[in-house]
Design a protein around this nucleic acid. Structure first.
Lengths: 204, 204, 204, 204
DNA sequence: GATGAATGAGAATTCATTCAT
DNA sequence: GATGAATGAATTCTCATTCAT
């Protein structure tokens, strides 16, 4: 019995993960191609290959889908950045590693990602975004491992994190040709390092 | 009849301007209080004190209202920045003047403004935003009047303009307490100037 | 102008009354033939010959339709009873007149009427029914014009009004053949008069 | 296996009884708290602590549950009335005993009971109710054991049974304070006895 | 037999838009 | 030109019921 059973291990839970995954996948695809206006629950279910009833078994309503997706994107992005920080590459300074991870992270499914973030904000959940950034920010503030030459003030931290994040995101959305150019990465690093340089000069 | 009617204020053309203005005003109010979900043409018309029929006499469809509003916001913002550049205040360097104008410009009706921008983007009109930024960018690039210590590359211009714009906008949305603190303005100026400083050092 | 206009006097209000009336009519018809299960807003609108949108312009939701109908039934019934009381027919004693009016009132569209009342009760609006009965009850208590031989106690009033009302209603629902028989009316009168007779004997 | 299984309580038939009972219990509870609108098979199953699949093993469909419950209520009520008639208490005349049994029977779980009756009626099963009443009615007509002073006509039987039943039920629904007052019982007895008194006087 | 995930028909409701007056 | 009643396609969501495991 156990042997035979192993074919269908974790029948419900595994399936649940798949259904959620398929729904995310379908939603992203629709968002990517037709934008927010083209997104409706029936279409999501159809694209995902599940019944509309199943969709509602996993999510209480349409917005919950977007919210969950956005949250997941945020988590993924955060993790990719954190990972890049942990993977202490001697050739790449931490700041550059983070920026590189950010560029890589934002490069896939940009339209869907943007709309997701906008959905979060429009739904009054911008605190979720803030929170996700705060986590990284807090990490950077705590043990930035030499990410920053000197500890930034809260205001400076806000400015630097948002500036880098926004610029990368906007470059992605506008499908700027320079997104993957070395110059883009260099200039972003320069922006952050320049800030500290200037600040230290000004403040003596 | 026409004689009698002339009692009414600004009958023809002026009225059209008013109606459009009332529709903008009503839309902004609804956006501000109930978000995108609460916005519908009937409600806009009601709030604006015009009939739904009239609303459709001035705008071909709902999206056109948001599009027109967003465009106007962009124009207003651009003009405020341009004005601040033109008004060459000897005490305030151009860069600081521009940043100050931006902060002031974003401070009013933030929720409505954000949703408007999102409407533009979601509707696939992000080129409109880009265009507006380009106009300023181009102006800055052309005769920045000493705005930048040295002419930035296109990539650098993209990074700097987006970074400043995004940071100010996000600070507004998050109702950050430091939005009107001197430190915030100073740090933004520092961010831009630092970039050039660092770049010049790196490139000799 | 006035002459010509008279063709379409009270365009909206008159139409509104008609739409409401058509919706009531359609709902009653559906209730009568297919019961509560067959009643849905799309069908009501279709039967009423109005668009579903119009239906929702006049009623906030499905329940409101039933509630409004039930209320109206109650009002009509009450009025028919009150009228019969006012119309002091010398040949017919008031009690008999009321019972006769009740029988006549309940005889039309019985199924719809029953379901309506049930909807009221099920929706937690049984107070509406109570209220309607109270109005008649209060009237009877105040100046029953010799309806009752002597003033009944509140409990007695409750028992008598509900007994008569229920019996007539149930006879209607069961499409009892005796509904319009003289005996039925006579026995109901006898029930009420007997109560007072017995009570006076018992209490001396 | 069967041997091992025998540890479990009342495995076969008794379990079926329990499941049905739990389903009834759960349905009544939901009906009581959230009314007809809150009643759905999934919720019933959950409340009853059985799987939805099991629920459908015991009942062919949702309506069957309500139907069965209503039928059972009717049977219980009928039996309580019959019992009270059989239990010839020398101190309590049969009529009073029946009325007392009725009041007691209706006093428990009134909301659920009402909705149940409505379910029966709405489902076009009002004949079931009629039938239950007919059984008692027939019994009363056959050997009322001195319940009535003289045999009532079919019409009178209809009127008397429905009047008493309805008044008690309505008093229950309206949670009338006088439900358990002596006066209420007395007046009901008076209503029935008065009818015969009056009838005999009128018909000589 | 039991389970509960999955199904999908169908119901309620919204709202952009039209057009007769 | 203005009005606002009317329209109905489209959308969200529910829930009775089935059936593979």
């Amino acid at each position: 019995m156990p042997a035979i059973d192993s074919k269908r291990r974790k029948p419900q839970r595994a399936s649940a993960v798949n259904v959620v995954e398929m729904i995310f996948e379908a939603s992203a695809r629709i968002l990517q191609t037709d934008g927010r206006a083209g997104l409706n629950t029936n279409r999501i279910a159809q694209q995902a290959g599940v019944s509309i009833g199943s969709l509602y078994a996993y999510f209480p309503n349409k917005d919950a889908i977007l919210l969950a997706m956005a949250r997941r994107e945020l988590v993924l992005l955060r993790e990719s950045v954190m990972t890049s920080l942990e993977r202490e590459d001697p050739d790449t300074p931490p700041l550059r590693a983070v920026i590189r991870a950010l560029i890589a992270g934002y490069s896939t499914r940009d339209q869907a990602r943007r709309l997701l973030m906008e959905a979060l904000v429009a739904g009054g959940h911008s605190d979720q975004i803030r929170e996700a950034i705060e986590v990284v920010t807090a990490f950077l503030a705590r043990d930035g491992r030499g990410l920053f030459p000197s500890p930034p003030s809260p205001t400076a931290l806000f400015i630097l994190t948002r500036a880098v994040d926004s610029v990368v995101r906007l470059a992605t959305y506008e499908q700027a040709g320079f997104l993957h150019a070395q110059e883009f990465e260099d200039d972003l690093v320069c922006l952050v390092e320049g800030y500290f340089l200037k600040r230290d000069i000004d403040h003596r």
